[in-house]
Each structure stands twice: as C-alpha cells, then as structure tokens.
Amino acid sequence: TTVVVGNKKYTFDNPEAAEKFAKKVAKKLGATVHKTNGTFKVK
C-alpha cells in the first residue's frame, strides 16, 4: 500500500498502517486523505 505525500512516496505492507500514517500526516498538514486504487494521497 502506497501513501503519497506531495512528491514523496511511502510504502507499507499493511494497509491499516498506511491509512493511519496518511491520516496522521494529513492532520498535521491540515490536508485530506484521498484513496485511489489502494493508494492513499494526502493533499
């Protein structure tokens, strides 16, 4: 599962961990999490 934050990509074996990370980053940046085909995008 990939999490994309700006131009950085983070890969997780565990989708739950990926989602948690994405939400944490989004909260910090005041952004939102978008899920597309198993990829979480923070923007």
Rank of each mutant, 00 (worst) to 15 (best):
T1R: 06
T1V: 11
T2E: 08
T2D: 09
V3N: 00
V3E: 00
V3Q: 01
V4W: 15
V4H: 09
V5Q: 01
V5S: 03
G6W: 11
K8N: 08
K8H: 10
K8S: 08
K9P: 05
K9I: 13
K9F: 11
Y10V: 04
Y10C: 05
T11V: 12
T11Y: 13
F12Y: 04
D13L: 11
D13P: 13
D13Q: 12
N14W: 06
A17I: 13
A17Q: 11
A17E: 11
A18T: 01
A18E: 00
E19V: 06
E19M: 10
E19T: 04
K20P: 02
K20N: 11
K20M: 13
K20C: 10
F21M: 03
A22L: 02
A22C: 03
A22P: 00
K23L: 14
K24M: 14
K24N: 09
K24P: 00
K24H: 11
K24V: 09
V25Q: 05
V25P: 00
V25M: 10
A26E: 01
A26Y: 02
A26G: 04
A26K: 01
A26M: 02
A26Q: 02
K28G: 05
K28N: 07
L29D: 02
L29I: 11
L29K: 03
G30Q: 06
G30N: 08
A31N: 03
A31K: 03
A31M: 14
T32N: 06
T32L: 06
T32M: 07
V33F: 05
V33R: 02
H34A: 07
H34M: 11
H34F: 12
H34D: 09
K35G: 05
K35F: 15
T36M: 12
T36R: 06
T36G: 09
T36F: 13
T36A: 09
N37M: 05
N37T: 05
N37E: 10
T39D: 14
F40G: 03
K41I: 15
K41F: 15
K41S: 12
V42N: 02
V42A: 01
V42R: 01
V42G: 02
K43I: 15
K43R: 12
K43G: 14
K43Q: 14
